[in-house]
């Protein structure tokens, strides 16, 4: 749940996550955007169970995602440390890629 008690957010932007558009607010962390959209599975563990973000401060690496750059290359990033930008393209690692 995004709270408006203490913050006023700028106008929405949309980024692409796993091929679909997800809305968020400029400046927000990618982790916030994903969790707010209910996309809280970051990978599938060896035991086949979904795995989520844990520390939200760059320490645990559980929120690793791939940013897809303009030239098609991927750049792995910790979602809790990424500030979203307009037209960003993101892929989670919740598929068979581990």
């Amino acid at each position: 749940m995004r709270s408006s008690r203490h913050f006023r957010r700028p106008g929405e932007v949309a980024i692409t996550v796993d091929g679909r558009l997800v809305h968020g607010f400029p400046g927000e962390s990618l982790a916030t955007l994903l969790l707010a959209a209910g996309l809280d599975v970051f990978r599938i563990g060896a035991e086949g169970k979904p795995r989520g973000l844990y520390c939200n401060m760059g320490s645990c690496s559980e929120c690793m995602v791939d940013l897809v750059l303009e030239d098609g290359r991927r750049r792995p990033m910790r979602a809790c440390l990424v500030t979203i930008g307009d037209a960003m393209v993101v892929e989670r690692r919740a598929g068979s890629d581990g």
Partner: peptide
């Protein structure tokens, strides 16, 4: 998913609302 460190949970609240 949904299990956080309390510090991590707090960081969502105070820095992201």
């Amino acid at each position: 998913p949904g299990l956080f460190t309390t510090g991590g949970l707090q960081a969502f609240v105070k820095s992201q609302g």
